[in-house]
Computed example of a mutant assay.
Amino acid sequence: MSFDAGAGWDGTCSPAGAPIPSDAPASVTYEPPTLGACTPSPAPEPLPVIATFGKACGGYIGQPPEGYDLCIQTRSDGSCWDDYPEKREFTEELIDNRSCSACECGPPAGGECSADVFLYGDAACSEEIAASEGIGQAETRCADVSSPSPLVAMRAELTKAEPGSCTPSVSTVTGTVEKGKMHIVCCAPRRSPTNQTLTYTCPRT
Rank of each mutant, 00 (worst) to 15 (best):
E31H: 13
E128D: 00
D116N: 10
V145P: 06
A138N: 12
S146W: 12
P189A: 05
Y60C: 10
T167R: 08
T201L: 12
L151K: 03
S76Q: 01
K55T: 05
G59E: 10
N97R: 09
E92P: 00
E133Y: 05
D83E: 12
E162F: 03
R88S: 03
F90K: 00
A102P: 01
T91Y: 14
T197E: 14
G6M: 03
E66W: 03
A24K: 14
V152F: 07
G180D: 07
C186S: 02
L158T: 06
C103Y: 00
S192T: 11
A37M: 13
T174K: 11
F53G: 13
P15Q: 13
T197I: 15
P65H: 03
S114Y: 00
D69E: 13
G164C: 05
F90V: 00
T172I: 08
Y84C: 08
P42Y: 10
M1R: 10
N97T: 07
K181F: 09
T172E: 14
D4Y: 08
G67F: 02
E89D: 07
T205V: 13
F53T: 15
D144H: 02
P150Q: 10
S114D: 01
E93M: 02
T52M: 11
G111M: 06
V28R: 07
K160E: 11
V185G: 01
K87C: 03
V173N: 04
A5M: 06
P168E: 05
R75K: 07
E133P: 00
E31A: 15
Q137V: 04
E133Q: 03
G58N: 12
Y200P: 04
A43W: 06
A138F: 04
E162I: 13
A153F: 03
S76C: 00
Y30N: 01
T39I: 12
S149T: 09
G59N: 13
M1Y: 10
T172N: 06
L35C: 08
P32Y: 10
V177L: 12
C113A: 14
C187S: 03
A43C: 08
P64D: 02
T91S: 06
A7S: 15
A51N: 13
D69R: 15
C100S: 05
T205M: 09
A156E: 03
D116S: 05
E86S: 13
Y60R: 10
C105Y: 01
T167M: 05
E128A: 08
Q196D: 14
N195F: 12
S14H: 12
P85T: 04
A153M: 05
S169P: 04
P33F: 11
P193W: 12
C166F: 09
G175M: 04
Q73Y: 02
G17C: 06
Y84D: 04
K160C: 03
E127D: 09
E139Q: 06
P107Y: 06
I20Q: 13
T197D: 08
G8F: 12
A124I: 00
